[in-house]
Design a protein around this nucleic acid. Structure first.
Lengths: 235, 235
DNA sequence: AAACAATGTTGACATCGTCAACATGCAGTG
DNA sequence: CACTGCATGTTGACGATGTCAACATTGTTT
């Protein structure tokens, strides 16, 4: 049912009028790549003013076009945010995939994936907030849904590796993925919102340490029960 | 524009014009209790239009007052939302406290608290969204912070009971509270945003069952090691 | 009764999202 | 090359919004 959909993303370097790298057919014209510029400007503005404080007209101004130019690329303010969210999900998935590289130990891989999720939330806070803003949530397109599904599938596949390595109990992979994502996501949200600022446990830790804490706790909960000896032949 | 210049609109049930139940000194006057009416109207409107779609003037209209009357009770649109969030935190804490009543088994109590959190998010979605909207998060008052701290403290105290009952390992109560809240909060958020709609594991379960799933997984991770007793089966 | 503070109203302003109409430049067709 | 069509960008307008300032009303206090 879920298709590992194709997530395109264009790197956000200042492209110029004349040469647009590889453009699927229709962008770039008078301006250069207005669509790209608007998305970039939107992200910058949101980093300063928040999602609610973002205005289409200000993005247009930042891109140096008239206040109605954005409507040639996005049907509405909300849809601009949705497209940004789609791009964000793609970047997040990349980050998750890259985080596990070079790590052979399956259990540690899981932890690293979790830390990557948290790192993304902290480093790309504005983007992360857009991706999970309730405004965007109310207007999800099928493309955004597919991108979110891909994230879940990645958690699943990462856990399946752990299952096969005998690190966690067999079965219930989906359940574990659900719990894992939830814990990571909740921790990231609470941290970004500052809800935990007054708690000793969170105030004195870096976010990625909290991610590790969360993941380790979970793994303790779903790991192979009470193998009295860990003869499990260290690979 | 409808000529509402003759807009001496006496609210129908204004008999309590003179007698306001227990009013700390200053509210209630011309209108009755405009502050309360505005908060209620705001909540209703957000349930329909979302947080971003909420507008001060519409709330004023719903309360039957002029578009500037709200400024006598709230300094700005955002502060209205913050006050709503504070009230929401209070209600949430009440729900959490009530959920554990009559349940003696400490482990089951924890699970019930988690389900209550999820129930609250699902039942009072609009309020929950306000409480954790990024707009509110950027403008937290000390009062809101205190209300959020109280929630954390409640999770802590609930866990401490489990510790004393020998259900979970000793120490690290704060860490466990952090992980628990994170997992609950993340699950609630992902569910409300519909992010998990395409996953079998979440689509076929009621939110409160997911809350139970999350909590049971966590408890397995922090419970006393190797009680050679039967382990409970999660259905 | 008079002064005062609390509460509510009216009017104004800049700004916003969006629509409609118009302008401009590229790409193809003859 | 002229012509045509489409993609892109601009100008102008409209209603709505958040907020400020000035004014009006009402209950309370002196």
């Amino acid at each position: 049912m879920l298709t590992m959909s194709t997530l395109f993303r264009y790197k956000s370097d200042m492209s110029d009028h004349t040469t647009i790298p590889d453009n699927p057919g229709k962008i770039a014209f008078h301006h250069g790549d207005l669509r790209r510029s608007l998305l970039d400007a939107t992200l910058s503005l949101i980093a300063v003013n928040g999602v609610q404080g973002f205005t289409l007209r200000e993005a247009a101004r930042a891109a140096g076009v008239s206040h109605n130019a954005p409507y040639r690329h996005f049907p509405s303010r909300t849809h601009l945010l949705v497209e940004l969210a789609i791009e964000g999900q793609g970047l997040l998935l990349d980050a998750l995939k890259n985080s596990g590289k070079r790590i052979v130990d399956p259990r540690e891989r899981i932890v690293r994936v979790g830390m990557a999720y948290m790192d993304f939330a902290v480093k790309h806070t504005a983007l992360f907030r857009v991706m999970f803003s309730s405004d965007v949530a109310r207007n999800r397109t099928s493309e955004l849904k597919a991108a979110q599904d891909a994230t879940f599938l990645h958690f699943e596949s990462e856990l399946r590796a752990n299952e096969q390595a005998g690190v966690i109990r067999e079965g219930a992979i989906q359940e574990h993925a659900l719990v894992g994502w939830s814990a990571l996501h909740g921790a990231a949200m609470l941290i970004l919102d500052g809800v935990l600022d007054n708690t000793e446990v969170a105030a004195h830790r870096k976010p990625r340490e909290i991610a590790r804490l969360v993941l380790e706790s979970l793994l303790n909960g779903i790991q192979q029960p009470a193998q009295p000896e860990k003869r499990r032949s260290s690979k």
